[in-house]
Amino acid sequence: MILGVDKEGYREIFDFFVGAARKRIWMAGDSSIALQKRRTRWGVFDCLSWLEKAFQTVYPKADVQRCVVHRVRKTLHCIRRKDQLEVAEELKLIFYLHRNKEIVIQMFQQFESKWSSKYPRENKSWGNELDVILTLMDYPSSIPSVIYSTNAIKCTIKEIRNN
């Protein structure tokens, strides 16, 4: 699903693809005519690296935002159960409660130093992705709540399935 969001946070479905067709369409660069008419500033992605690369091919000047919710969930699957609650709370403090990019980076560095010896692989992957996780902080405060996650798309798809 291609979901557009304007400056006020209003959402509009631009296009919807079913099944494997979306990969073929995006890889060929044949994005929706409705989408092509609009100025695309960013794309929000979960773990579909091919889709992110295809988007950047079609829209090379647009920013990419990695879904924070998916990234946190992925991390928690790799954390020992006894540490999950503490790690989740710290990530929530870092990425959901602060709007200042410098403060978030400082807090992440503290998180990284605390957990790096216990979870070096997860810390490294967060560090490698931090720039695309923090893209949302380069936009006005009305936008991040809409683009920090792909959940709006998932909720819309669920609603369509139920009807």
Results as ranks from 00 to 15, higher is better:
Cys155Asn: 13
Gly43Ile: 05
Gln110Asn: 13
Asn100Arg: 12
Ser32Ala: 10
Val132Trp: 02
Ile143Asp: 00
Ser49Cys: 05
His98Ile: 07
Pro60Met: 09
Val64Pro: 00
Leu85Phe: 03
Ile143Asn: 02
Asp63Leu: 08
Asn128His: 15
Lys37His: 07
Leu51Thr: 06
Leu97Ser: 11
Pro144Gln: 06
Ser141Gly: 06
Ala88Asn: 08
Val87Thr: 03
Thr135Glu: 05
Pro120Thr: 10
Ser31Asp: 07
Pro60Gly: 05
Tyr119Arg: 04
Leu134Ser: 04
Ser149Lys: 03
Lys124Leu: 14
Leu93Ile: 10
Gln84Lys: 10
Pro144Leu: 05
Leu76Asp: 04
Glu122Thr: 02
Glu129Asn: 15
Asp83Phe: 02
Ile133Arg: 01
Phe95Glu: 02
Lys82His: 01
Leu85Arg: 08
Ile105Thr: 14
Glu89Ser: 11
Ile160Asn: 03
Phe95Asn: 03
Lys118Ala: 11
Cys155Arg: 14
Gln56Pro: 00
Asp131Thr: 15
Gly127Val: 04
Lys154Val: 11
Ser142Met: 11
Gln109Asp: 15
Gln36Ala: 12
Ala152Met: 11
Thr156Lys: 04
Ile79Trp: 01
Thr40Trp: 02
Glu86Gly: 03
Val69Asp: 00
Thr135Asp: 05
Glu102His: 09
Asp131Gln: 13
Gln110Cys: 13
Tyr139Glu: 08
Leu130Met: 14
His77Asn: 11
Arg39Val: 15
Arg41Val: 09
Glu159Asp: 13
Ala54Met: 07
Cys155Ala: 15
Ile103His: 08
Trp115Val: 00
Lys158Gln: 12
